[in-house]
Design a protein around this nucleic acid. Structure first.
Length: 567
RNA sequence: UGGGGGAUAGUAUAGUGGUAAUACGACGGGUUCUGGCCCCGUUAUCCAAGGUUCGAAUCCUUGUCCCCCAGCCA
């Protein structure tokens, strides 16, 4: 991430910044910030913001991006969340250097700013309770009513506020409010609460405080204190910008950052709000924040996504103000593209079908050379054992092959990758169930390595493993979390759980993989040829019992043909 | 019947007065020891209607639709 990359402005935010730079604003500085609240895990939507903020900083000479925890609500926040957030940002490949901040570090300063506002007659202590404040706020079409406490003297306000801090009052009994305009058409300007009493210990300040500043008061001032130049946030804060500016203007601070809003990311077939993700976790509908089906960074990581692919995705989706829903297929394309270049190839059989090569010597074992990655010859080759008894994929054989099915069938010849041509001569079935349990084939010794001297062709190449040499493994196949692309077009948004895909996880426990995978490291990624990209699970996989998560399948043209055939 | 935003192919983004671009997807084809990768082709007249102009997605007018706001959450 180090260094400066000169690239033309590619979105409206970068354009604004480029113009500011050209106009000599902010003494040529560019300082952004990523301000998560430590109350949950980061998801791919946060990645968009992270890439934007850290990306802009990296693109500009001397640019800096701060990591600031917006920890003003101790009743929801935990240090563990802050830890996971930092780990996720680092994993994504970004570095805040020594610019790690906490809004809670500014509590004393913020308190002093509040005092100043009171002294200037711009804030007052209000004794109304939450219900009363709501009643007085008015509605979208009607102005609010002024609080009876709005005209308290500066002295009384100062005294009361000090006593709030001293802990003399109960939660909810009083608040500090900005004195703006109860008739404003912008609800946020109707004397917003800027401090509330909360007798709750804070994960960083302990029990030092029992009053905590609200977001609207904290965020703008934190930005200002840190010398942020461009404060990027999502669209729903557009209405808050007048308040952001009001606080900084009234306090007449030296640094007045510019807030710019952009649309948050929505992805098809998944959910992207902390509330919904938390719900899935708490109700056990997934196995945790890092369940590979989750849109969390930790879930994607465990699933096998690479940081590069996520960054690339964030670059491709762009930044704009229009509400949008990005196709999950783009994210999948990004991992495939990355892993195609980097993942070593390997053979593994998900649903094994035993194949006996009748004319292959009983005790012979050949070590055949296989290419580790055709996209990168530098990755070399490896040896794969071949013997008389093999496993192939059940779906690679059809007793009664449909049109366009090129794979194995009775009497048909196919190639075993890096091995031989084989021809199916017999099908053994279970007498009871009729299920195909074993195939008998013959091989052509002349085709060793995969090509026939007589030039004859086969229409399919199958992956396989040697039965006695292969090792057992579990595979977890994931599918979309939701069955609907956009759950919000369902009548009830709260009912996204009705759209959950009951087949989002399929566990296969009888897989067989080639022996080279014996010491596969947790977290390492492979392409199982013809199947997809798999990642050794970092939690449940051990040398004696390998567990692979399917990151994403390969593009499957045959599946599409077959689907079309059925119509 | 308040205020703030937004509308360009199935999706996302570009284009800011001169004959609509890119990516993903879909479809068709080529290539192939992965039905993968790669390559080629097809896929929109820019929310609508008026207007200004030689010329408009871009400017003006009037509509329509969508999103956000009534937490002592962020």
């Amino acid at each position: 991430m180090a260094g400066t990359v000169s690239r033309p402005a590619t979105d409206f935010i970068r354009s604004i910044i480029a113009e500011d730079l050209k106009a000599g604003k902010n003494q040529g500085r560019v300082v952004t910030r990523f301000p998560p609240e430590p109350n949950g895990f980061l998801h791919i939507g946060h990645a968009k913001s992270i890439c934007l903020n850290f990306g802009i900083a990296a693109e500009n000479e001397g640019g800096i991006c701060h990591l600031r925890f917006d920890d003003t609500n101790p009743s929801k926040e935990e240090a563990e969340y802050a830890e996971s957030i930092m780990a996720d940002i680092r994993w994504l490949g970004f570095d805040w250097a020594d610019h790690l901040y906490y809004a809670s570090d500014y509590f004393e300063k913020l308190y002093q700013y509040a005092v100043r506002l009171i002294k200037d007659g711009k804030a007052y202590v209000c004794d109304l309770n939450a219900d009363e404040i709501r009643e007085c706020r008015g509605t979208l079409t009607e102005p609010g009513k002024e609080s009876p406490f709005r005209t308290r003297s500066v002295e009384e306000n100062l005294d009361l506020f000090e006593r709030m801090r001293a802990g003399e009052y109960e939660d909810g009994s009083r608040v500090l409010r900005a004195k703006i305009d109860m008739a404003s058409p912008n609800m946020n300007m109707r004397d917003p609460v800027i401090y509330r009493i909360l007798h709750v210990p804070h994960h960083r300040t302990g029990d030092k405080w029992c009053i905590y500043p609200m977001y609207d008061f904290t965020h703008c001032l934190s930005d200002s204190i840190e010398g942020i130049t461009h404060s990027l946030c999502s669209l729903e804060f557009e209405d808050h910008r007048p308040l952001y500016d009001w606080v900084l203007d009234e306090l007449n601070v030296d640094c007045h950052p510019q807030q710019i809003e952009f649309a948050r990311l929505n992805l098809t077939y998944t959910v992207m709000s902390k509330r919904k993700l938390l719900e899935l976790v708490e109700q056990g509908l997934v196995k945790g924040w890092d369940d590979p089906r989750m849109s969390t960074i930790s879930g994607l990581r465990r699933r096998g996504y690479t940081p590069e692919s996520i960054r690339n995705f964030c670059e491709r989706i762009g930044v704009a103000k229009r509400d949008s829903m990005v196709d999950m297929a783009l994210l999948e394309h990004c991992v495939r593209e990355d892993l195609n270049k980097r993942a070593p190839r390997v053979m593994g059989v998900l649903r094994p079908l035993k194949v006996v090569i009748d004319n292959y010597p009983e005790d012979l074992v050949e070590e055949l050379e296989a290419i580790n990655n055709p996209e990168d010859p530098g990755m070399g080759t490896r040896k794969v054992p071949f013997s008389r008894v093999l496993y192939i994929e059940q779906e690679d054989f059809r007793e009664d092959p449909p049109k366009k099915f090129f794979r194995l069938a009775p009497g048909r010849e196919v190639r075993l990758r890096y091995a031989y041509f084989i021809r199916c001569v017999d099908v053994v079935k279970d007498e009871q169930t009729g299920e195909i349990v074993e195939l008998h084939c013959t091989y052509d010794p002349e085709t060793k390595g995969g090509s026939a001297p007589d030039g004859r062709k086969v229409k399919a190449t199958l992956h396989w493993v040697s039965a006695p040499h292969s090792i057992r493994a579990e595979a977890r196949l994931y599918d979309h979390l939701l069955v609907k692309a956009d759950p919000s077009d369902e009548k009830d948004d709260a009912d996204f759980k009705a759209c959950l895909n009951s087949n989002s996880l399929e566990v296969l426990k009888t897989c067989r993989v080639e022996p080279s995978l014996k010491n596969a490291e947790p977290g390492s990624r492979y392409q199982f040829e013809r199947l997809g990209y798999f990642c050794v699970d970092s939690v449940d996989s051990f040398e004696e019992s390998l567990v692979f998560n399917r990151t994403v399948s390969l593009r499957d043209t045959w599946a599409r043909i077959e689907k079309a055939l059925k119509k």
